[in-house]
């Protein structure tokens, strides 16, 4: 990039109105925190319903995923997310929304070339690097437990 362009890019970046970071953080903290509290409440409820600790944790996640997908289908999730930002994106709800939204959108190209092929276009990186990180963690954990 030549000097003129660098100066222009700096000028454009400097004058651009920034996202309201503090407001976004507060909203993300409140809504994200609320979702996690609901998750915890669900876990307690599933436990009370007689599920084991492991299974009630899993069912709490499943319930949150179900709710996020349902809200996505009704066209309400994006409205909440517009307000909450990372508050809905970071918990498991964001992942569920990314998959469900893509599924709805690519339905017009059919179940194979549409939904099947495009389902993970948004959520794909999370799966790839999530699983990869898990594998690396597993390997490190295995080596360390063998050594010490």
């Amino acid at each position: 990039m030549n000097a003129d362009n660098k100066t222009y890019a700096r000028y454009a970046e400097k004058r651009a109105k920034k996202s309201p970071v503090l407001q976004n953080c507060i909203r993300a903290f409140t809504v994200g925190g609320a979702i996690c509290s609901v998750g915890h409440a669900l876990r307690t409820l599933w436990s009370a319903a007689g599920l084991s600790e492991d299974n009630s944790g899993m069912m709490a996640s499943v319930t949150l995923i179900f709710a996020a997908v349902l809200l996505t289908g009704f066209g309400r999730f994006d409205e909440i997310a517009k307000y909450a930002g990372a508050g809905t994106l970071v918990p498991i709800t964001g992942f569920a929304n990314a998959v469900a939204a893509t599924a709805i959108e690519s339905r017009s190209e059919g179940l194979v070339a549409g939904v099947g092929a495009k389902l993970f276009t948004v959520a794909g990186p999370v799966i790839v690097y999530g699983v990869s990180a898990g594998a690396i963690y597993g390997a490190v954990y295995f080596v360390l437990t063998k050594l010490f």
Partner: peptide, 17 residues
């Protein structure tokens, strides 16, 4: 949106610009 950005129902925030 679907060609250039994200699916319609995807929950995200836009920047002011």
């Amino acid at each position: 949106e679907r060609q250039f950005r994200f699916p319609l129902e995807y929950g995200g925030q836009r920047t002011p610009t």
